[in-house]
Simulated assay, not measured.
Amino acid sequence: MDWRQRLLNAAEKTGRSDRSISLAANLGPNALNEIRNTSKEPSVERTLKLIEEIGVSRSYVFLGIEITPDVEEIVELLGRASPLARQGFAAFLRERQPPEAKTAPQPDPQAAASENREASR
C-alpha cells in the first residue's frame, strides 16, 4: 500500500466526505478528491494539511509505520539534536533496557548440531 492509499483509507475511516476534509484543511473543496481520482501529486505542504485534518500520523501515511504522538515528538527532537546528543540519548536508552532485551538470543550449538545430523540422514 502506498502513501496515497494510506491517506485515503484514513480519510474514509473518519466518516467525513472528501469535500469536508478538504475545506476544513483550507485547501479548497477538491483537494482530497484530486488525490483519490487523478494522478496529480500534491505538494508536501498540502499533504501535511490533510494529514493533520484527518488526524493520522505522518509516519503512518509516509512510511506505513504507526507511532504514537509522543514517540513522533521524540523522533522530531532527535532529528534536530546534535550527533553527540543523539549518541547520548541512544546510550541512555540502551542502559535502561531490560536485561533480556540487551543481548540478542544466541543460537543453541547443540540444537544446531542435532539439526545438521537430522538433515544429513
Results as ranks from 00 to 15, higher is better:
26 N>L: 08
120 S>C: 07
5 Q>G: 09
19 R>A: 04
121 R>A: 15
33 N>P: 03
26 N>E: 15
38 T>C: 06
110 Q>T: 13
37 N>C: 13
47 T>I: 11
4 R>S: 10
8 L>P: 00
104 A>H: 08
43 S>Y: 13
93 L>D: 00
118 E>Y: 13
118 E>T: 15
25 A>K: 07
4 R>Q: 14
90 A>E: 11
30 N>I: 07
73 E>S: 07
64 G>T: 03
55 G>H: 08
101 A>S: 11
84 L>I: 10
77 L>W: 08
104 A>Y: 08
70 D>E: 15
62 F>T: 02
117 R>A: 11
23 L>K: 15
32 L>N: 02
33 N>A: 11
29 P>C: 05
27 L>I: 07
21 I>E: 00
25 A>M: 03
70 D>V: 07
107 P>R: 11
11 A>S: 05
12 E>G: 03
42 P>M: 05
16 R>C: 02
6 R>P: 02
111 A>D: 07
9 N>T: 15
71 V>S: 08
69 P>C: 01
13 K>Y: 04
48 L>Q: 07
11 A>K: 04
9 N>L: 14
43 S>Q: 04
63 L>P: 07
9 N>A: 13
35 I>W: 04
91 A>H: 09
7 L>C: 00
65 I>N: 14
38 T>L: 05
74 I>T: 09
54 I>A: 01
15 G>D: 02
82 S>N: 04
56 V>S: 00
2 D>C: 04
9 N>S: 12
55 G>E: 08
8 L>C: 02
67 I>P: 03
94 R>F: 12
18 D>L: 04
75 V>D: 01
116 N>D: 15
13 K>S: 14
80 R>Y: 09
41 E>M: 13
94 R>N: 11
67 I>C: 05
93 L>T: 06
15 G>M: 03
107 P>C: 03
63 L>W: 13
20 S>Q: 11
27 L>P: 00
76 E>C: 06
9 N>W: 10
31 A>Q: 00
82 S>Y: 05
120 S>H: 12
110 Q>V: 13
40 K>W: 06
110 Q>K: 14
94 R>C: 09
85 A>I: 05
3 W>A: 12
4 R>C: 03
3 W>G: 03
110 Q>G: 15
7 L>E: 00
44 V>H: 13
41 E>F: 09
17 S>K: 01
19 R>N: 08
55 G>L: 00
111 A>Q: 15
23 L>G: 05
17 S>L: 01
108 D>L: 04
67 I>A: 09
108 D>M: 08
44 V>C: 06
99 P>L: 04
11 A>R: 05
121 R>H: 15
117 R>Y: 15
105 P>W: 08
79 G>L: 02
103 T>E: 13
118 E>D: 10
63 L>V: 12
18 D>Q: 14
67 I>R: 02
100 E>V: 14
52 E>P: 04
45 E>Q: 12
